[in-house]
Design a protein around this nucleic acid. Structure first.
Lengths: 137, 137
DNA sequence: GTATCTGCAAAACATTTGCAATTCT
DNA sequence: AGAATTGCAAATGTTTTGCAGATAC
């Protein structure tokens, strides 16, 4: 991924593009692996030796606040992050714990109001056994 | 709620009905307020002065394992619990933080397999501003 | 030079665990 | 007595916070 792209994305969303922030964003976009803070730390602290977890926490919080990433909290102690923010669903395998993106417009649930509540976000996730774990048997 | 009902529910699911377990189950069923462990502790430790949080944790874990309750983990540090286990959706108000039950069969998403993954559970939740918070303005 | 960003260490907080005390049959 | 249940205190692990040092403009 071109570092200029991540730089532009950050600037568009009003976040100053520091080296750390760019690297973290590029990691999220390239890997699409719904990483935890710890995974990000392990995977890129080689490239940026001084990187601290505090910075990763700060950065991800800023990303979520500015609509660059979303936090995924599916029955886990650790929060996972996803740089794909448009409407899509997730699938979590109960065996391996992996999370998969499911391309599905969650707006199929098309109501705007529900029992008088105004809906602004729809979240949809599935649980089951993933393709790979089925083969492993 | 008749204590005999909670007693029977527990026995049907293979859990020995102790006083503590019955009280916690009755609380969940009567209040339907998606409480955290802490809320349960605050609300019923008056009735059962010796009650400890450890017991509440143990009890809720047993309930979830035996299909008596489900854990709700919507973007919060603390896990919330719900004794309604049939398919229904949740709505979380981003202002007051309350969680509402939405009577909706989540099986409207009727697929059994998705990208080769076998689906066993469907979870659906909405976020927005609840009826009450709209009025408060 | 001032504001922002970063990193360390400590604090905070929910949950789990080990083990001893209690209760129930 | 024997087995299950409960409760306390300590441990665990993630996230937050305070503050000092580094960096950028």
């Amino acid at each position: 991924m071109d570092p200029c792209d991540s730089k532009n994305m950050l600037q568009e969303k009003g976040i100053k593009p520091s080296l750390h922030r760019m690297k973290i964003l590029e990691y999220l976009i390239e890997k699409k692996n719904h990483p935890t803070v710890d995974m990000i730390f392990r995977d890129i602290s080689g490239e940026i030796p001084t990187l601290s977890k505090t910075t990763i926490y700060n950065t991800l919080t800023a990303f979520v606040e500015n609509g660059i990433a979303q936090a995924i909290t599916i029955e886990d102690k650790e929060v996972k992050y996803d740089a794909t923010v448009d409407n899509h669903a997730h699938f979590k395998c109960t065996k391996c714990g992996n999370i998969y993106d499911i391309n599905m417009d969650t707006k199929i649930i098309s109501i705007k109001t529900l029992s008088g509540h105004i809906i602004s976000e729809r979240h949809l996730y599935f649980k089951g056994i993933c393709k790979l774990c089925q083969k492993k048997k």
